[in-house]
Amino acid sequence: MIIKTVDSVQKATEGVEDGMTFMLGGFGLCGIPENAISELVRLNIKNLTCISNNAGVDDFGLGQLLHKKQIDKMVSSYVGENAIFEKQMLSGELEVELIPQGTLAARCQAAQQGFPAIYTPAGYGTEVAEDKETREFDGKMYVLEEAFKADFAFVKAWKGDKAGNLVFKGTARNFNPVMCGAAKITVAEVEELVEPGELDPNHIHVPGIFVQRIFQGKNYEKRIEQRTVRQKD
């Protein structure tokens, strides 16, 4: 067995530098690597490129890095919830590459699985496909999209064991599994870190081979963006 645990978020983020490209899991604020983001804010590294489906909200998630102007470029599919983001984007301070959500997932997965690129129908005939190679298969047009290249992937799981095996909960899974192993170093933070053998191998969502460092996360806020409820009948 190969042990992947590190005992702090500081150890887990060792090696991050100005100008690097990071992948960050999560959908909205659901399943984001809260501890890693806080540490990146504290380290105040700059000129980052962040690949993440969304950009957090003004004062939480990636919004904190935007607030401190640590990010030069975002690669995302939807950024509607973030006023700082919109301001920095419209002023040209922040470079933004908006891409279809399925393409974002596929480019992560391609990086994880060793495909240099994939063909997708998403975005064909739109500005997303401008200057990209296209090809027809069975009468339908597809766009060639390249695998991402990233220095670190920061993901968050519900449970993990010391061998780096991960289990997710609910829709907090989202982009986290496809980012594992898609960067040079994958850092997983978990709500509950357990001993090897405690997780049923039948129920592992991400095998530990895709994870280089795992640590027990702390103080999860797990903020809800749109609290929608109904009353008991």
């Binding site: 959908f27 659901c30 399943g31 489906n53 992560c108 899974r173 809800i224 929608t228």
Partner: peptide
């Protein structure tokens, strides 16, 4: 549950027979 939302980021529930999966 903060770990159970829809694509509009609204809190939802899962029906019997539901499944969860990654974005890919």
């Amino acid at each position: 549950d903060a770990d159970l939302i829809n694509a509009g980021k609204q809190t939802i529930t899962a029906r019997p027979g539901a499944s969860f999966f990654d974005s890919a």
